[in-house]
Design a protein around this nucleic acid. Sequence first.
RNA 1: GUCCCCAUCGUCUAGCUGGCCCAGGACAACGCCCUUUCACGGCGUCGACAGGGGUUCAAAUCCCCUUGGGGACGCCA
Length: 463
Amino acid sequence: MTVVTRFAPSPTGHLHIGGARTAAFCWLFARHFGGKFLLRIEDTDLERSRQEYTDSILASMIWLGLECEGEPLYQTKRFDVYNEYIDRLLASGNAYWCECSPEKVEAMREKARAEGGKPRYDGCCRQKGLGAGPGRVVRLAAPATGRVVFEDMVKGHVAFDVAELDDMVLRRSDGAPTYNLAVVVDDITMNVTHVMRGDDHVNNTPKQILLYEALDAAQPKFAHVPMILGPDRQKLSKRHGAKAVIEYEEDGLLPEALVNYLVRLGWSHGDQEIFTMEELVQFFDGTSLNSSAAAFDPEKLLWINAQHLRALSAEALLPRVKPFLERIEAPCADDALALRVIPLFQPRTSTLVELAEAMKGLLLPAAEVAYDAAAVAKSLTPEGREHVRVLKERFAGLASFDKDAVHHALHSYVEDNGLKFKAVAPALRVALLGSGGGPDLAEAMAAIGQEVSVARLEKALSL
RNA sequence: GUCCCCAUCGUCUAGCUGGCCCAGGACAACGCCCUUUCACGGCGUCGACAGGGGUUCAAAUCCCCUUGGGGACGCCA
């Protein structure tokens, strides 16, 4: 039997990190077992569903590298299928028409709540033998007693008393199917073998199992992954602080790093922290999932991202930083130059945004270098300027300008004059880079080249 | 209120078929080293088995209770 998983977002917002993690788990699980990963758009809430959100979710999935098999399935296009299944339930006596108004049902619930019980519909239309009619809904004729039991892949043994469940609505008065009905029908018809979803759905599971039973259909395996909580340990949701995946994209995060971080939240493989997508596929088999909720830690995400950023080759990184360079008006005209500059900042930055900003400082022509006033005042002293002046001449006269050549020129100047390297480095650094921090001087000069290096020093001397 | 789930350092976690754990790794914090700066890196410090009962020769690991946290109770998904 081939494994089939599915991710089923509702297009009422952008894809947020909780959903992204669930999607990643589903995708990984299917990949690991050589199965299929399907996508289903749960857009039956006509009020809140929007096409733009569907587009956004799809785009985020692609960005994350979690591509699904075939075309996504839209629930709104499947009302015929749902009605067919509802008719079957009606015919088999597992469902019935109900004429109770929402107000009446709400009153029942209030009453039950007041009496300290579980709010539920009392099933008063069950024996009425009603047929279809305006304002009427179809409800499941749930068994009155017994227990619903299932083995969850992460929670283990879970049991519910059916007395806790009520006769849920299957078909709304407007003819649209309800969530639980649609999910079950879809999972059956899509041949889903493993339902992996958020913890917040465990309570729906017994209701859905009742439907599988009423439909006499085989049940999938369930895996309820714990929620992601905010740094404050409060629930993270679309309406409460959950950042959308696209925001991370804009922040310069690497998709593989986001997936790495998200998956590690609630899953582990020994002490390993950094995983490539390939490793994730190799190791993720649905076990080692944690059963408790995890708090989102932005700092660790950043660290993971930095690790992935450093692991990439300059060639691989170049096309990925380019959009960020353009965004800060430092478009890269010289790929070879950019390729030499990237490695200088890989150990010094943790996002593409930071990388682009750092690169900008070296990509600029001499005339546009921005000097940090405090650093200039501190290091470009008369004495410092003198060092820069002489050094500039020496650099200009170099036949070769690779890192070693520059390094030797620099150090021979220091030795020739009986100086300490520390005495000349700060001035040269500010003159060259405009500020007090940054990469190795010889490396930086070799990267931007002799002409620009000399021009930069000259510019600094004119300050 | 009722039901379901969960409970190891501030955070993510290893460990949970009991002894190798007076609990390991990672992020963060702090310190030292490396060093032309800023980083990277290396080394180290701080820091947890929620509490109480059992079971056992032995419990972070098994059972119960308490407490705490989360989720769900819709003609939302």
